[in-house]
Amino acid sequence: MEKAGIPAAHICTVTPISKTVGAARIFGAQAIPYPTGDPHLSREKEMARRREIVTGALALLTSSDKSVDGESNAVFTD
């Protein structure tokens, strides 16, 4: 999608793998079975968490920074 000219943000949990395969915009998700939610939270808090992840990922779409990453997820970077 990036190659076709559409900015695309990848929301995923194990972000190092997304980095390995070369994604340009990566945003850290909640957990593998529920990337944009959390069943342990109340309904309101879960929606707040979802808002945080979705707006965070959307913000990456507006960034012109070459290496963009929602949360700094790598311990030792390139």
Partner: peptide
Amino acid sequence: GVNGVLLTST
């Protein structure tokens, strides 16, 4: 005419 994409994975 889409301008941007969110892609989720598990």
